[in-house]
Design a protein around this nucleic acid. Structure first.
Lengths: 194, 194
DNA sequence: GAAAAACCGTTCGGGCTCAAAGTATAGGTG
DNA sequence: CACCTATACTTTGAGCCCGAACGGTTTTTC
């Protein structure tokens, strides 16, 4: 990746492309760099740590959540892992087939699904997490502890802004119009008419 | 997303799980928040801006790169967009079918593929980008310009660390062992023996 | 206590994701 | 000109990704 060079240069080109329309350069740079950093970190961790255990990033995150919080309801795991419940269903299927996760019914609420690690899953996390954390240290090693805290705090502001005001903002942008449906997604079953 | 609450609490739980093994909390928090922020920003922008034009995040980024840099070689677009060339092939197919991107051959090097926007593609970007940038401002609106610059700088350190030292690091970690092959991927064609 | 509304996990469709393998072109060497 | 190597794009396989639709359970409402 040529990386940063292009982001800075691009700012001028964007302005030119739009012919005078003002562009928020700092904001553009933050978003671009958040995404670049996320991709770089994910790729490094998958190749350096997770690959040898045949885990994807998402699979690891899901295992991590269940490991840390203990037996958990499915919806909480999806929320913590930052994936949709539909995606979680598939990931859990994979992990269950590998014998790392166990599914069980909620004793009193028949809608809920409880997830927990198997012994093998626990053992895997005890083995893999220290290596994972070591690479987290590697990717952030150009920053000292204070800089790390500052960076985390700044990112948290972004997350909070979206979480607390995003929904309202999206509604305001639509301004009454019905939200465009996704092109993909399950088709409505044809109903017999007549 | 319960979000930050959990990340902070989780730090204690991790320590307990590992029974004394030291964990780099600040580093863990940075990586977790980078990923959370990236997902939040992506989701907001897809739903608030891109959905109405039936664009995914990746499709938009690819269009953006070609828009800004003009007719470009395929490999450069993949690099700038931060996706693999295999992924780009598929994304370009989608965009070409929609009439937003044009493929053409390099005049002197038959291996190269040149990508450019169609008139429709140009028009789409002129229309969508200002809205996109407005939401970039929204998601970062809890930060002032200085904080944005600081945040971008910090993230850049992470990207640079991985780009400049990641490869070497991964080799050192493997320590001579052959890298575990991916479970998925194209199968080698059966060769006739005898 | 039955109908209605809310909630939960699964299924489904279209698409993105990577890396390994494959095809094709380009440039060098003998 | 035959190799051989390097480079560039495409194909493939397994998997993740979202959100809409769906079927089942629980709670609310009348």
């Amino acid at each position: 990746m040529p990386g940063q060079r292009s982001i800075t240069e691009a700012e001028k080109l964007v302005e030119a492309k739009l012919g005078g329309t003002p562009v928020s350069h700092e904001r553009m740079a933050v978003v671009a760099n958040i995404y670049r950093a996320a991709a770089a970190v994910r790729q490094h961790l998958e190749n350096a740590v997770l690959r040898s255990s045949d885990l994807t990033w998402t699979a690891f995150v899901v295992l991590w959540v269940i490991w840390i919080w203990g037996e958990s309801e499915s919806r909480h795991v999806a929320e913590e892992a930052g994936i949709s419940k539909g995606t979680l269903t598939g990931v859990i299927r994979t992990l269950e087939l590998r014998g790392l996760v166990r599914r069980s019914e909620h004793p009193s609420d028949g809608r809920l699904l409880l997830l927990s690690l198997t012994g093998e899953g626990e053992e895997l996390m005890r083995r893999v997490f220290p290596d994972f954390n070591a690479e987290e240290s590697f990717v952030t090693s150009r920053l000292d502890d204070d800089a790390c805290r500052a960076l985390a705090t700044g990112l948290r502001q972004v997350v909070l802004q979206v979480e607390e005001n995003g929904e309202e903002r999206r509604l305001a942008l639509l301004d009454g119009a019905k939200p465009a449906p996704r092109r993909s997604g399950r088709r409505r079953q044809a109903t017999r008419e007549g």
